[in-house]
Design a protein around this nucleic acid. Sequence first.
DNA 1: AGCGTATAGTTTGGCATCAAACTAAATGCC
DNA 2: GGCATTTAGTTTGATGCCAAACTATACGCT
Lengths: 164, 164
Amino acid sequence: MHGTNGTGGRLRGRNGLAAAGPINFGPLAYWVGFNLRMAQEAAFQAFSRRSQDIGESPGRFATLTLIARNPGISQTELSQANGRDKSSLTPVVEDLVRRGLIERKRMDSDRRTYRLNVTAAGKKVLTTMTRCARRHERNLDQLIGVRDRKRFLQILKRIAAEIE
Amino acid sequence: MHGTNGTGGRLRGRNGLAAAGPINFGPLAYWVGFNLRMAQEAAFQAFSRRSQDIGESPGRFATLTLIARNPGISQTELSQANGRDKSSLTPVVEDLVRRGLIERKRMDSDRRTYRLNVTAAGKKVLTTMTRCARRHERNLDQLIGVRDRKRFLQILKRIAAEIE
DNA sequence: AGCGTATAGTTTGGCATCAAACTAAATGCC
DNA sequence: GGCATTTAGTTTGATGCCAAACTATACGCT
C-alpha cells in the first residue's frame, strides 16, 4: 500500500492542515507514462534555456538538422520525420525562409510540393545550434551513464516506433 | 560520416528529385533529447486514444490521482507535483469541481489557499481511469521488457529531478 | 498598528500544437 | 478530354501550456 498513514495517504497536523511533506505519487511513481513526460519536459526546459543563450528556438533545431541532412526534402516528409503535423510546419518554414536560413523551391515535376534546402547562412547557424545541443547531450549523458545509454536510447526508439 | 552518398546526404534520381527513401536523421538519431520527445509523444498519443474510449481527457488523470493520494493538497503543491505551472491548473480544477469529481474548500488558517479533495463520484471515475492507465502501462512494459524496466524508470526519474 | 514583502490563486497574452476544412495540382479511370 | 479521387501545403479554430501581471491575503519587522 505504499506506506499510508491512516489519514488517506498524507500526514496532517492536528488542525487538519495538509503537511508540507513529500507528495505521495501513488501509482504514478512507478508508471512509465508519467515519468516519461516529466523527464521529457525537464530535458526540454533545460535545452530551452541553452537555446536562449544562442538566441534560437529549440523547435527550430530538429527541423534545420533534418533539412540539412536530407536536401530537397518536402514539407510533408519533414513533418513526419519530425513527429509533428504538417500544418505546424508552415509558420516554421516561413520563419526560416524569411531569415534566409533555408530556401524553398517548387518542384518542376510536381508543382504542389516544395523542396527545402539549407542555405550557407543556415549551415552557419546550424553549426552553432549543434554545438549547443552537444553540450546539452553531454549533460544528459552524465545523468544516464555510458553503461546504460545505448540500451536507454534503444528503448526510447522502440516506444516511439512500436506503440500500437 | 553515417554513410553519405556524395549528394549531401540523400539519394536522388537522375532529375534531382529527392528519393522517397528513408530519412537521414544525422545526429538526431543518437541524441537523447530528440528520442525522448518522440517516445513521449508517441506514448501520449496512445494514451490519448485510450482515454477517449472512457471519455476522459488524459491531462485529468495525473491531477485526480495526485489529489486522491494527497487529500487536502493545495493547488500550488499540486501543480508542482504534476510538473505544470499553477496557472494551467485553474481551468482544470474548475472543470473537475463543476463535474463534481473534486471539492475545494478555503483553508481556515490561510484564506488564500484552497484544499482539494476527491469526492465519491471522483473516486469512481478515478478507478475507471486507473484501469485504463494500467492497460496502457502493460503495453509500454511489453516494449521495454521486465528486465530493463526498473533501470529505465530510474533514469527517467533522474533526468526529471537532476537536470540542472 | 502600519508598511513592505511574500505567497496562493486568477487573469491575460502569446505560443505551439493538432485536426479539420480548404485550395491547387496531380493521377486514374472512362 | 473530362470527372472523381488523391496529395502537398495552407488556413482556421480549438486546446493546453507558460510567463507575467494582477488581486487578495498573510507575514515580518519596527
